[in-house]
Write a protein that binds this DNA or RNA. Sequence first.
DNA 1: CTGAAAGCGCTTACAG
DNA 2: CTGAAAGCGCTTACAG
Lengths: 330, 330
Amino acid sequence: MATIGDVAAAAGVSRSTASYALSGKRSISEGARRRVLEAAEALGYTPNAGARALATSQTMVLGLLARFHADEFAPAMTQYILGVTDTARDLGYDTLLVTEPDGAGALRRITDSRMVDGVVLLNVAHDDPRLPVLRAAPQPGALVGLPGDCSGVDVFDLDFEQAGRVMVDRLHGLGHRELILVSQPEHVVERGGAYVWRLRDAALERARRLGVRLHAVYGESRRPAAERMLGALLDARPGATGLLLDNEAAAAALPSVTRARGLEGLSVVGRYSAEFAETFALPYAYVELAPDRLGEMAVRQLVRRIESAQARAEPFVVRLVPAELTSPPS
Amino acid sequence: MATIGDVAAAAGVSRSTASYALSGKRSISEGARRRVLEAAEALGYTPNAGARALATSQTMVLGLLARFHADEFAPAMTQYILGVTDTARDLGYDTLLVTEPDGAGALRRITDSRMVDGVVLLNVAHDDPRLPVLRAAPQPGALVGLPGDCSGVDVFDLDFEQAGRVMVDRLHGLGHRELILVSQPEHVVERGGAYVWRLRDAALERARRLGVRLHAVYGESRRPAAERMLGALLDARPGATGLLLDNEAAAAALPSVTRARGLEGLSVVGRYSAEFAETFALPYAYVELAPDRLGEMAVRQLVRRIESAQARAEPFVVRLVPAELTSPPS
DNA sequence: CTGAAAGCGCTTACAG
DNA sequence: CTGAAAGCGCTTACAG
């Protein structure tokens, strides 16, 4: 592989001149400049990433930490990841994807070893063990998901409280007065999925204010169980005419359940991504999660902090994307 | 951040002694060894990845190139990726995930700049533009997906030809004599998805030999279209009593179509992952794709080649995983 | 406008 | 058993 020394020799200049000609960081005589560029082209020169990182303290790589749990149904993961990787590349960065169970240890490894210039955390829990590590790290970090303590990091998430209100308002507006909310399974909450109770508590509060009965329950995250759970639930609450689904597995399972029972009068509003709605051909109105957009927002802010000392000094942000209701396909 | 110089100073030894004590690559007096390890621990020392890569020509990072097409339904992508990242980590490697549309350019970038020690290509096309780049690269590469030309790389894939035969045999064994095969959409084939016609041609050949009528058609990859297509197809072929689905969107759509038509007599056999079967609660027998296992196999072989000069000299392999029929859930 | 040199933080022959 | 030194391939003050 050609080094910058080879390029310099071929162009008949010093290595520093070759470097400056390539980077454009100082003015170079037109002739030297041209010879360097031609030599680089001819030799197929690409700078060695490790050497450059060592010299500049910049790797042009972002870390992406994703949590996968075997007992969770995480259909939006690909969209989150694509939002991050595509945006990173647009901004000139590559992405190191880390999926190991010990997220805190992994985070320490990639930050301490200076493999990355910054880090995006996906699937952030209320009391996320990765956060202390991230705050202690020299690189900036951006989160997708709202933790209990947002200090020291930029945070991006859907406004789940507003989502809860929007969902209740929708069914109340359609005239329904007894509703069921199916949340994520309890183990998701126990694991720190604060968005579950943020949506639920806001929905309960709104329902109370509107004089609507709202039964909030935990759902399932696996497929055959989700069907059974919905069936039992509808049996137990025959008076309920509206269903709020903050649970992807339940949303995916519902069509077959209602079809089997002939419950065409049931009104439903979900909370999932547009991609998910299409994949499962769901006919319900829903609050869109927009995982790719959240990933993009996190990366843009992260790169701002990485590249500008001024931006690094700005106060940290918590950006909650407004919950918007998307109509079902007609 | 502490450097190895800091550790050496704190332990009262030279940098080379500190380095050797940490790596264990030569014998060190017990006292010096202990003091180095304690100093490293106390200072929270982690080697700088860029510096180490520069010195050793090893990054301990694997490149993972995934292709995403907006018009493709790629439900197994997460499983492929997890198979790769989890296995890589088990073997001591991190994973650089590259998703940009220009896969050949991206591959050249990460190999030329020496960001990675090896590369896994996902979603390999028959005449994949990334392959010439990979063959020219100094790093070894492993593919998930069988291209037209396997020279210079290790290849892992499901045996799609055998899958086609297994699927026909299954329905023939159940007594069916007129079948329909729904393949991926035509644009997947045009893009180089050779596995589509490998399965189809093998199925046609087997059907011919068994005296079974087999109608092979292209399906859809998007959700509402998949339902319509299946409906029209079943109308057009009223004599067909068995369905082979080499198309995830069609498999996901089929339950609602058959329910709407009361086609309980239809026998179905699919080709998808276990994860997919569960996610969509599919009641059909299927040939399992096992994307995580394919990813794992590719990484293991890749790391073997990276780490052993002897392995690097071995002939390249093409490993086709046998197609096995998985029974539907009872 | 340009070059010689130092330095980034490691590893590893080379000497002793 | 250990240390001084060279070298990996860059970038960037420092001099001229």
